[in-house]
Computed example of a mutant assay.
Amino acid sequence: MHKDESMRRTVYKERESQSRQREAWPTLARLEFRPKAAQTKTCALKMFSNKRLPPRDIVSHEREGLQERLAKRCPKEDLLLLDFWVSPFCMRVKIALAEKGLNYESKEEDLFGGKSELLLKSNPVYQKVPVLLHNGKPLNESAIIVGYIDEKWPSPPLLPACAYGRSQARFWADYIDKKLFDATCTVWRSTGEAVEVAKKDFIEVLKVLEEALGEKKFFGGKTFGFVDIVAIPMASWFYASEKFGNFTVEAECPKLSAWIKRSMQRESVAKALPDPEKVYDFVVMFRKMQGIE
């Protein structure tokens, strides 16, 4: 009996010692040597037991290894935006980049004095902004660029998770591209009785969008997303249309106006959109250049 009791105590002490060792070095063993779990954990424990590193050194060593692996997986992105400050299409790209938390360089184009060789080379078909160069590869057309950004950097997502939701978002983005910009600009490009016709058409487009928005906070629901990014830059041009058309969007479409104010509270939008009065000054200047009185 005495011999058995002595053996039990010896086994208990050995197990207790092994348990303390496992508690001392489990984190790094799991993190650094996960592929070959059983065999490699033992090697890791022996390696660090021989070195007698205190736990804080293990944590530091562990973080350095993690940072090195993340750097290899996520190389630094080279993003260059060929921009024009008043273009609502360029604003879309800037908002999308900001929503993803991406750093980029912006190069302002002189669209009236002469387009750069880089722009002509990067977009030889349309020769217009925006162009986003990702690691030297050019991307054209704002809605396509926003979609690329969302696909390349999926978090946080801009498009809905389900296929139907994504198709609906793309439908409304296409509607905005085909209807909203032209309707907005036609108001301030018109003169005489044509202004009233243009104003009526513009308001009809806004009401269609207001109906699509419904009671939702944003077009995609509770979260700011793809359709909001495509639509909100045009709001910076509404003031010019209001001035020349003698009306207000708020009076005609109060729900849409409330959506504009909500969207403007986002930092990404507030930083990307210029002052509407500066856009109005640009429109006045552009009308003179086009001989519109």
Rank of each mutant, 00 (worst) to 15 (best):
F112L: 14
K51M: 12
A71D: 13
N140G: 10
L53A: 08
R63C: 05
L111G: 01
L81A: 09
K115F: 02
L111I: 07
E99D: 06
L66P: 00
L82Q: 04
E141G: 05
L79M: 14
L80F: 06
L45I: 13
S122H: 03
P154C: 00
L97E: 08
E68K: 14
K107F: 09
P154W: 00
K94P: 05
I145E: 08
K72Q: 12
K128G: 01
Q67S: 10
K51P: 05
E117I: 04
R52T: 06
G65W: 06
V86A: 14
K72V: 12
D110C: 03
C43M: 14
L139T: 00
D150Q: 08
E99R: 09
L80C: 15
A143G: 04
K152E: 12
L80I: 15
P124H: 02
H134M: 03
K94W: 05
S49E: 11
V146D: 04
S87P: 06
N135Y: 01
H61I: 08
G113L: 05
E62N: 12
V93C: 11
I144T: 07
A71S: 12
R52F: 02
I95M: 08
K76R: 12
W153D: 01
E109N: 05
H61W: 13
P138Y: 00
M91A: 13
K46V: 15
V125S: 08
V93M: 13
E151F: 03
P138T: 02
K51H: 09
A143V: 11
T42D: 12
R69H: 14
N123D: 02
S49Q: 08
N103Q: 13
S155W: 11
P75W: 11
L111W: 14
L66Q: 12
G114K: 03
R69V: 13
L132V: 00
F84T: 11
N123P: 01
E77P: 11
W153T: 10
E99T: 03
